[in-house]
């Protein structure tokens, strides 16, 4: 355990210095550095803990205004195409969760001004499970889910 912590610390400081160097070189804006990677949320092993770590609360409300597109059957769990689109007003972030994965939180996207609430990407799914899209709009989090049957797990 102590050793594991040391690894994390080492990794963290390495990453920090590299980012520092990148800022120096004018590659990254300081804003990127402020958007710290929420380690607790990504390492969480269930949806509630992941949401608390990411958004501060595990509460979310199902909404039919979120259109979550994913295949019914994914033959290869290593590459599952996902598209999320919403007509919810004032959406500021879209997050993706594969509820059957060991670490369910897959990705989170913060939308800038003028960016449409639309994201398309590809994710890994370890087994047949619900894929959940979470959209933050105003102070609330809305969700949509879809079961994806996975033939060969990709984790």
């Amino acid at each position: 355990m102590i050793d594991a912590k040391r690894r994390i610390l080492l990794k963290g400081s390495l990453a920090a210095s590299a980012i520092g160097a990148a800022i120096g070189a004018g590659l990254l804006s300081p804003r990127l550095v402020l958007a710290a990677w929420p380690e607790a949320a990504f390492n969480a092993q269930n949806l509630d803990d992941a949401l608390k770590g990411l958004l501060g609360s595990a509460a979310h409300e199902p909404s039919d205004k979120i259109d979550l597109k994913a295949p019914d059957i994914a033959e290869n769990g290593a590459v599952v195409p996902v598209t999320v689109e919403t007509t919810l007003e004032g959406a500021t972030s879209i997050s993706l969760v594969a509820s059957g994965n060991m670490m369910p939180l897959v990705a989170s996207f913060e939308l800038g001004k003028g960016t449409l609430p639309f994201i398309s990407t590809r994710v890994k799914m370890g087994k047949t499970a619900n894929l959940i899209a979470l959209v933050k709009a105003g102070d609330k989090v809305y969700s949509a889910s879809k079961e994806v049957k996975v033939t060969v797990g990709g984790c």
């Binding site: 990705a107 913060e110 800038g112 003028g114 960016t115 639309f118 398309s120 994710v123």
Partner: peptide
């Protein structure tokens, strides 16, 4: 103008694909 900030885990597929839309 920052259009999108994404935070990813190792759960995003190898050789990641990302698509988004914006105006302005």
């Amino acid at each position: 103008r920052t259009l999108l900030t994404a935070l990813w885990s190792g759960g995003v597929s190898k050789n990641p694909y990302l698509s988004f839309k914006f105006t302005g």
